[in-house]
Amino acid sequence: MARVIVDVMLKPEILDPQGQAIARALPRLGFSGVSEVRQGKRFELELDGPADEAALSEVRKMAETLLANTVIEDFAISIAE
């Protein structure tokens, strides 16, 4: 049993108006020192078995097929401790 994390982010060149709105809200709330915010998605996948190479390869396929739209998004896969 393992938990695999897939983080999906808009590609750097894609405008993120939600992140910009959050960045503009921070100073209004008294938070300073943040120059940019990018908003993304995090998926937590509970695997039936171990996070071995075969399972991670499957997760990569899931990310490419469904979790991310690779036209506009990048993804990163990691194994939760």
Binding site: P17, N69, V71
Partner: peptide
């Protein structure tokens, strides 16, 4: 291509 959140939200 793709359709993303409106610029002005």
């Amino acid at each position: 291509g793709a359709l993303t959140r409106n610029e002005g939200l």
